[in-house]
């Protein structure tokens, strides 16, 4: 149910295209330019690491791709759609449908159960709760290894478990792209390895495209491609020989 259109059957061309992305924060004297014209194309089913020093613009870039923010200049083309043409509600809808997020601070709603957290994007999109949503969300939680904890409240789960719920939630709407901003940043090494393995597994099995910000060179080394950002510019973009698989 969570599986998007198979990569093989999808139309040719990148699932994500960035053209000359510029982002300024603040105005007047206080203006700082976080991104200086970023061009990037990400193919369907690619698993890309985004690395770079702190303050280099990684989160800014992810927010623009995820339609949480609008660029100062340039275009974000998501699944063939120029998102600059959408109004706010259009952006919200497109975001809910095409993008899944995994944040560093797991960001679940604490008063909802694991199952309900995964159902949230579905309910938001449909406007109400339907029985098939629980079924679908349950299956997703099974996939991330939490089939036993469906009804536990989010704030009673461990950090690693919460982040797995966040992954399941990111997959809930069968998005084109999953954006993960330092998803393992708050986890111990073992949990981090397990979570990364999970992301990779979803990518391989379901063909979901991933863009993962990480500080950890060990994890970056397990990606298909590594893009490095310094001072708001892409300084290197190289394919990576996959180890293991």
């Amino acid at each position: 149910m969570a599986e998007p259109a198979a990569a093989a059957a999808a139309p040719a061309g990148p699932v994500l295209r960035l053209e000359g992305l510029v982002k300024d924060y603040g105005g007047g004297e206080a203006r700082t330019r976080a991104l200086h014209g970023v061009d990037l194309a990400v193919g369907r089913g690619e698993f890309t690491a985004l690395i770079g020093p702190s303050g280099s613009g990684k989160s800014t870039l992810l927010n623009l791709i995820g339609l949480l923010d609008r660029p100062t200049a340039g275009r974000v083309v998501l699944d063939g759609q120029d998102t600059g043409l959408l109004d706010d509600d259009g952006l919200t809808r497109c975001r809910g449908r095409a993008v899944g997020f995994v944040f560093q601070f797991h960001h679940l709603l604490p008063e909802f159960s694991a199952l309900e957290n995964v159902m949230l994007p579905m309910m938001a999109a449909r406007g109400r709760q339907t029985p098939d949503m629980a079924e679908c969300a349950g299956a997703l939680l099974g996939q991330v290894g939490l089939g036993e904890l469906l009804h536990r409240r989010a704030n009673l789960l461990s950090g690693g478990q919460q982040q797995r719920v966040a992954v399941a939630r990111a997959l809930a709407m069968a998005p084109r792209v999953v954006l993960a901003d330092e998803p393992t940043g708050n986890l111990d090494t073992r949990s981090a390895d397990a979570l990364f393995a999970l992301l990779r597994q979803v990518n391989v099995r379901a063909g979901v495209t991933f863009l993962v910000v990480t500080h950890d060179p060990r994890l970056a080394a397990r990606c298909d491609r590594i893009v490095e950002l310094v001072d708001g510019r892409v300084v290197s973009d190289r394919p990576n020989r996959r180890e293991g698989s």
Partner: peptide
Amino acid sequence: RGEIGILKATGTSTGT
């Protein structure tokens, strides 16, 4: 605030 942000990030509209 944080939860509202999450709701929005996961496709909940301003009106909702």
